[in-house]
Amino acid sequence: MVMFAFRRFLQLIPVFFGATLLVYFLVFATPGDPIAALSGGKPMAPAVEAALRAQYNLDQPFWIQYGLYLKNLVTLNLGQTFSGQEVSAVIARAYPVTARLAIMALAIEAIFGVLFGVIAGLRKGKLFDSTVLVASLVVIAVPTFVLGFVLQLVVGVKLGWARPTVSGAAPWNELILPAVVLGLVSLAYVIRLTRTSISENMNADYVRTATAKGLSRRRVVVVHILRNSLIPVITFLGADLGALMGGAIVTEGIFNVPGVGNLLYKAILKGESATVVAVVSILVIVFVVANLIVDLLYAWLDPRIRYV
């Protein structure tokens, strides 16, 4: 297991450098000068331009630029927003909110996804199964922002059960509605995954053996089928947590949740390239690390993976 973790960690290194290089290259080395864009394409005083280029290290050769960007990234020196706040401080303020939202969405996915998936998988082809399958397809097909607006309108505005938008402190109870919207799409995937996994394992040899030796159906389902079927579900949930921690740009934008996704959304709207790059770089790191943890979790749960 330690060797596997080490090997997997080594694989992370080229991904980290590659992804950051890609982001940096895309933003600063493609045609269309970000500095020229700052002035809206109008001519800029040469001294101002030179100072700006020096500030973003754009007067250096590309590889030195990239090195300096990496150094800044590692030391969390991410520069300032247009309003003069430190980007790292803004991210640090927004992250707890995103984390809270992600955990709530994940809890919704895990509880309802596994519950519905197990029932559907055990009764494959019955009414409940078909209903859940069709419903999950519909949820997958409706884009998140449509789902968000509809629930905001119906639950928040028309019925008044929840605040349509979240207040500055973003307490738990106000985050329920955004968390439901955020969790719904993945909930559909969790249901389908659990269902497939359960119905596949129902035909496995060890289940037949367990039934043959006289175990009750309840014990076969809970102890044998469920334990083995949940491995792919847990890894999916782990990967999803990584994606959720990467900020839900759309959901946070709709409900005005003051998290990292919203931060990114506003930075895009204001055209703050440097902030966008800084936030996305951080999110990519979070995503990569989350995937590493999921892989390790998978290997720990399913020993067969380690020897491949």
Binding site: V15, T30, G32, G271
Partner: peptide, 27 residues
């Protein structure tokens, strides 16, 4: 495989946001 891993590390919407807000694409 490594190249694919690098692109996988960038979630699609995040990556698309970066590209689409580049001046060359934005204009």
């Amino acid at each position: 495989a490594r190249l694919g891993d690098i692109f996988f590390a960038l979630p699609m919407i995040l990556g698309a946001i970066i590209i689409m807000q580049l001046p060359a694409f934005r204009d």
